[in-house]
Nucleic acid binder design. Structure first.
Lengths: 325, 325
DNA sequence: ATCGTTGTTGGAATCTTATTCCAATAATCC
DNA sequence: GGATTATTGGAATAAGATTCCAACAACGAT
């Protein structure tokens, strides 16, 4: 049995007969079906949905007849699902959730929203830049909406490839050769430490100088963690990692608790490390200056709203460069 | 603007008014809507769907009225989407795809299928074990179906947490504390090399012995890649990585092309490396023996079919241990 | 064994919604 | 100005869904 025959990343296309069957699906039937599943009782489901029990019964029976499957075991005291019914329940819930999203989003448009952008971004972008950038974006476009989800860089790329979102922001190191790439921001890594750490009085540090001390690491999918491990390996040294934690604030708290040195971007330190009595020393290594990038599937075919967001994000650094000149 | 206010991993619940609006959505309207969007012309959409143009027009207008939004700009020579229309189009396509999945899966049940299991698995599990295990499973349960998708270990865990699938298989190192965990398999890493490599005559190797030579690495999200980098760092050495590639077969091809040593599981080498004239030398390091694990959200509440699969996968190693005894 | 209750389903009547038919309106092109 | 393309409104017709009413089945209590 080959690999290709067992992995089903892309569901097979419906046959013409199956396509015809899609027309026998309707949302009221799915809604009633879910109610029957939840209540395990047709009469209570009918009451919950405000309809006669015989109407529910007819719909369930019509549906079973149309598809040639049995969805329920009819018991004396109610109904139980068959495996086919369980499979349908999974899809029915997903479908009804999608419909709810339609209602929610269109309701927002009826109240004045002018567009939606779907975005995936890594933690670095979210912690350091997006609150400010999106705040400014909303100030300029207060009738646009953003759906933003946090993902590690690798998953941002994959999500954009699969069309789960329109715009992604991730580490420049993530492999995105199938996408269009634009510069978003640079950030600079700083070594975070307590004020009483032996390195605390330094103006700048080489990463190798930190390797003589304990470290607090980010989670192992983090591109900062990966890059620092790589740098240590290149220097023929090892990182003395006492713990890995999943966020910049957790890194700062562990540093504060004297668990070692942390390595996070400077703006992240300003955002989450302020008021903890910690020092942040910039890295002198070249790789301490890192790039975040914007990825999209096909800029020319973005919706107008997503295009607006892309242009806006691209303009940020250009405007900052102009202001600094 | 706080982080929590901009990240929308969990869509907000619909208000009662929005829930009421969900009843104004129906699949025929969505289907006609998508047709109008595709054709950018109501008359052609009507022809494509086999219905009078006035019926399509009425439905589009009724829908817009119900939701209080404008979906189309009416032009002299057809219709163009508004931003609200673009938002709806995204969801309409997703919803219709779900309905198609319903039709496809129920069609399979009507032809005799007795259950579905949704699975996510990492590459190690898929390349080495699942073809054989699922083949045996299907032999015993030929009326059950498996939807299997390949994901790196971290995404397997996340997918099961989110309910995207019922059963996951991933590296034991992946953080799955929110899930129920069962043992699946062990695998053993081997160093893959050409027959003329200086290390080719060894029976076993320590990983550190390989670090004097060039290496071919897996992609950077791979748990084998991460673990080997960690081991090199612990030994105070660096891996001489000439290239990273995305699969076990690619690793073998690069090794064959004299790009360096590869590190992959032994069964993966047997599956994809056979016939390439390569040698596979076992690692002596303890971490060379790795564990794959099964993760589920809540074993007690799995469907009967998924329960069957879980019990079957758990029984595999138990049966192998009994056969070896 | 009988009776009452719970629950599902079938048939006929009624109601609601969707579609078709027909025509009007508007914009563009020749 | 006329022809064509495209959308939409109104009325009539058709189709499908629901309600009403009753029958049937299974279970539990007596």
């Amino acid at each position: 049995m080959s690999l290709a025959s067992i992995v089903s990343d892309v569901p097979r296309a419906a046959t013409p007969a199956e396509t015809a069957l899609t027309r026998r699906v309707d949302l009221t039937t799915l809604r009633l079906f879910v109610a029957v599943c939840d209540e395990q009782n047709l009469t209570r489901a009918a009451q919950r949905e405000g309809i006669a029990a015989s109407a529910v019964s007819k719909r369930m029976n019509d549906f079973e007849l149309a598809f040639g499957v049995t969805l329920f075991k009819r018991l004396a005291k109610g109904m139980a699902l068959t495996p086919a019914g369980e499979a349908l329940l999974h899809h029915a819930r997903v479908t009804l959730l999608n419909v709810e999203k339609i209602a929610v989003e269109l309701s927002e448009y009826s109240q004045g929203v002018r567009g939606h952008v779907r975005m995936l971004a890594n933690l670095s972008a979210i912690v350091q830049h997006l609150p400010e950038d999106l705040s400014a974006f909303f100030a300029a476009h207060e009738l646009l909406r953003v759906d933003l989800q946090e993902r590690p860089s690798g998953q941002v790329v994959r999500g954009i490839e699969e069309g789960a979102a329109d715009i992604g922001i991730c580490s420049a190191e993530a492999d995105s050769r199938a996408l269009e790439v634009f510069h978003y921001r640079y950030d600079n890594l700083v070594v975070v430490m307590r004020g009483d750490h032996p390195l605390a009085d330094r103006e700048k540090l080489l990463f190798t100088e930190t390797l003589d001390y304990d470290h607090v690491g980010l989670h192992t999918a983090s591109s900062i963690y990966l890059r620092s491990q790589y740098a240590a390996a290149q220097a023929g040294k090892t990182m003395r990692l006492r713990i890995n934690v999943p966020g910049f604030d957790a890194v700062c708290r562990m540093v504060q608790a004297n668990m070692g040195l942390g390595l996070i971007p400077d703006r992240a330190f300003e955002v989450v490390g302020a008021g903890m009595g910690l020092r942040a020393i910039p890295l002198r290594d070249g790789w301490g200056r890192r790039e975040l990038k914007i990825v999209v599937r096909d800029a020319a075919h973005l919706s107008a709203t997503s295009r607006l967001m892309l242009d806006y994000l691209r303009a940020i650094e250009a405007n900052r460069v102009r202001q600094a000149g």
